[in-house]
Design a protein around this nucleic acid. Structure first.
Lengths: 262, 262
DNA sequence: GCCGCAATGACGTCGGACGTCATGGGCGCT
DNA sequence: AGCGCCCATGACGTCCGACGTCATTGCGGC
């Protein structure tokens, strides 16, 4: 490593907290010797050491993640993510973003793919292709369930296999990257039990672009959409990074007219 | 860890490549013993081991990052990111996204904050508040330079100090999280030499929300905007995660009218 | 019965994270 | 000049875990 980023960060944060090496070392239960070595880059911290030090420095979660990354470790995640929405300006910006997407659809998800917000266009799509009569509870409010559950969008999804495949693949990938997230893992186990789900292919051949195609058809209504995922914030900023927006665009002229004509 | 994610992933990928433990171990220069332990979760891999194994398995970069994360390590990044744009559907989706944002502004950046694409609204904003006469080269095509360089937006930025602070902070944070990125570090060094930049505060007090306020004024034109960052893809999906979109919304009624009236 | 494959037991090496104690040097304060 | 405070650093030591070698056992298939 050219410049040891962790060393510099640690020094700066300790300075910001106005602690001497000795004080910090004492509080964190670390030897002053080792702390000094860490700040000069002569030693590299273990993951636990990073966590201990950042905890004693009372750093915000986001900062801890930066420190972890600077030392070459994966970030930690949190179970919150709803109250980040309480931040008024973020909330307002999201509202506007969704609104700008009209008449196309756009939906805001949390990291378990629960629907948090939905614009008019998306609501119309849902109303059109999801049979509200016999939708099992929880299916309409969760993207993964909506796609994979037999009473969800599945009857209307012409290319169900592909869509299911990328959805499953993505969920599995997420579970692998954040093994600590129990809720997400539970969701994965749940949908794996749905009929027909175990039949979709195993590891897709290197797939996984941020866009994908969706072909819906129910009665005389038919739409070919392609969708794109975006997440709030930068990938490094973990504040509200669990918030994802999926935007739906018409994939052909017919769908374009159909969307406009409603 | 409840379920060792890395172990399972490794086993699945090896199976997908139709290799026996012995073959893979031989090719990767690892003892069969250790490989077996890794697949049963009895041993945990070092960062280098993960890289060696994923390399011999010829996994895509994205998959390597997933494996790294599942073993608790930070992902690796790549220097490309432009050719991801060549993916036609992604490109098209981005085009549509920017277009939907009209008449508000929206700009697409790469991870060095170079401008890759810009919609009409953003172009108008730029034209209005950036003095093209004496803008130094490279300033108009890079967000960080545009904000921090004296010949950029700085004269028009009423709340320059705050804006500069978050921009600097963000850049520094990024440099810390990805110490390998030389280009980005060079940019940081460059802008640090601009006059007045060293005077902006050090570490901001736990700031860094995904939205921020911008107040622009030049002659009779004045706009108060708030901006939000979104990135393409999910935070875990590294395919094109280096692509960031900044969207500009009016922060008050006057600005709203001013924007519509152009 | 033989073979490919995976698991695993016993044992060894080694590097690095982290500890303890002691020393020396820079800097401010009186 | 003298005294504290803060930091770096030398010379040790401990310990754990990543990873190696060799041999053994158990499994399913031709």
């Amino acid at each position: 490593m050219t410049h040891d980023a962790f060393a510099g960060l640690l020094k700066r944060w300790r300075a910001a907290r106005r602690l001497s090496q000795e004080q910090l070392a004492l509080e964190a239960g670390v030897s002053t010797r080792h702390l000094s070595f860490l700040e000069t880059g002569k030693s590299k911290p273990s993951r636990e050491m990073v966590l201990r030090l950042t905890a004693t420095l009372a750093l915000a979660l986001k900062e801890r993640n930066v420190m972890l990354a600077s030392a070459g470790f994966a970030p930690i995640f949190t179970a919150r993510s709803l109250e980040s929405l309480e931040l008024a300006p973020v909330r307002r910006a999201i509202e506007l973003l969704l609104q700008k997407q009209e008449p196309y659809g756009a939906v805001l998800f949390d990291r378990c793919w629960n629907v948090l917000r939905m614009n008019e266009g998306a609501a119309r799509l849902m109303g059109c292709f999801l049979d509200p009569a016999h939708a099992a509870p929880g299916v309409a409010t969760n993207l993964v369930r909506a796609i994979l559950h037999p009473s969800g969008l599945r009857p209307a999804l012409v290319n169900w296999v592909e869509v299911a495949q990328v959805a499953l693949e993505r969920l599995e990938r997420e579970c692998a990257t954040e093994p600590t997230d129990e809720a997400r893992r539970a969701l994965l186990e749940e949908v794996r039990c749905y009929p027909g789900v175990d039949a979709v292919g195993p590891i897709a051949p290197e797939g996984g672009a941020p866009t994908s195609l969706v072909h819906l058809k129910r009665g005389r209504d038919e739409a070919r959409l392609f969708t794109m995922l975006t997440t709030i914030g930068t990938p490094l900023d973990v504040t509200a990074q669990e918030l994802t927006i999926e935007s739906y665009f018409p994939a052909d002229e017919a769908t374009e007219r159909w969307l406009q004509g409603r």
